[in-house]
Amino acid sequence: MYLIAEQPYFKVQREVSSIEQRDVEYERTIYMYNEKIVTQHREFSIENVLDMSYRVIGKEGGLLYLHTNKGVYSYTVKSSPQQFINAFKEHVK
């Protein structure tokens, strides 16, 4: 198994205490290997990923969508994941 590409993404989690509410941003990475795609909490066999797409939201960044046979998973990115998507499409040809 070898690494093909990686894409940073981030997760915003709201933390609430008795006196305040704040949003904490966690930076994570999606790794694409020749056999699977791995995120912080999920693993997708490359055969189960049907497609990838990207939608710009706001002035910069957007959502990277992984279309799988079990549904669509979205990941918030700060920059275009086009190179990651292109690497996937080249790999699954």
Results as ranks from 00 to 15, higher is better:
Val92Ile: 10
His91Val: 01
His91Arg: 13
Leu3Ile: 00
Gly62Cys: 06
Tyr33Met: 03
Val72Ser: 09
Glu25Gly: 03
Tyr2Cys: 07
Tyr26Glu: 13
Ser17Asn: 09
Val77Pro: 13
Ser79Ala: 04
Gly71Lys: 01
Ser74Thr: 12
Arg28Ser: 05
Glu60Gln: 14
Phe84Gln: 01
Glu35Trp: 03
Lys93Phe: 05
Ile46Val: 10
Thr39Trp: 00
Ser18Phe: 08
His41Val: 15
Ser79Pro: 13
Ser17Thr: 07
Arg22Leu: 12
Lys93Cys: 09
Asn48Lys: 06
Arg28Pro: 00
Arg22Asp: 05
Val38Pro: 07
Glu25Phe: 00
Asn34Met: 02
Gln7Ala: 05
Lys89Trp: 03
Asn48Phe: 03
Thr39Met: 01
Glu90Gln: 12
Phe88Val: 04
Glu15Val: 14
Arg22Gln: 14
Ile30Ser: 03
Asn86Arg: 06
Val72Tyr: 10
Glu47Asp: 07
Phe84Ala: 08
Tyr75Pro: 04
Gln82Ile: 10
Ile85Ser: 03
Arg28Cys: 10
Pro8Thr: 00
Val56Glu: 14
Leu3Lys: 08
Lys89Pro: 09
Ser74Tyr: 01
Arg28Glu: 06
Ser79His: 04
Ser18Met: 11
Ile57Val: 13
Gln40Leu: 10
Lys89Gly: 12
Glu60Lys: 11
Phe10Gly: 03
Thr29Phe: 04
Ser17Ile: 05
Ile19Phe: 05
Gly62Arg: 01
Tyr75Arg: 00
Lys89Phe: 08
Val72Ala: 08
Asn34Ile: 07
Leu63Gln: 08
Gly61Gln: 04
Phe84Gly: 04
Pro8Glu: 02
Lys59Met: 15
Leu66Gln: 01
His41Asn: 13
His91Lys: 15
Glu25Tyr: 03
Lys70Gln: 13
Glu43Leu: 07
Gly71Glu: 05
Gln13Arg: 11
Leu50Cys: 11
Lys70His: 11
Leu64Gly: 00
Tyr31Gly: 02
Lys70Asp: 13
Arg42Asn: 09
Ile37Leu: 14
Glu35Leu: 08
Tyr31Met: 05
Arg42Pro: 02
Lys93Ile: 07
Gln82Glu: 11
Asp51Trp: 04
Gln82Gly: 07
Ile57Cys: 14
Val49Thr: 07
Glu47His: 01
Tyr54Asn: 00
Met32Asp: 06
Tyr65Val: 12
Lys78Trp: 02
Ser79Val: 13
Lys11Gly: 00
Arg14Asp: 08
Glu43Ile: 08
Gly71Ile: 01
Glu15Lys: 13
His41Leu: 12
Gly71Ser: 03
Pro8His: 03
Tyr33Pro: 08
Glu27Tyr: 07
Ser79Cys: 11
His67Met: 05
Asn34Tyr: 11
Val12Leu: 04
Val16His: 08
Glu20Lys: 12
Ile46Leu: 10
Glu47Ile: 10
Val16Leu: 09
Asn69Glu: 15
Arg55Cys: 09
His91Met: 14
Lys89Ala: 00
Tyr31Arg: 14
Ile4Pro: 00
Glu43Ser: 05
Gly71Asp: 03
Thr76Val: 15
Gln21Cys: 15
Glu6Val: 11
Glu6Met: 08
Tyr65Phe: 14
Ile85Thr: 05
Phe10Cys: 12
Asn48Glu: 11
Ala5Asp: 13
Val16Gly: 03
Phe88Leu: 02
Ser53Lys: 06
Tyr9Asn: 00
Lys78Ile: 06
Leu3Asp: 09
Val72Glu: 14
Ile85Val: 14
Thr29Val: 14
Gln40Trp: 07
Ser80Gly: 08
Phe44Ser: 05
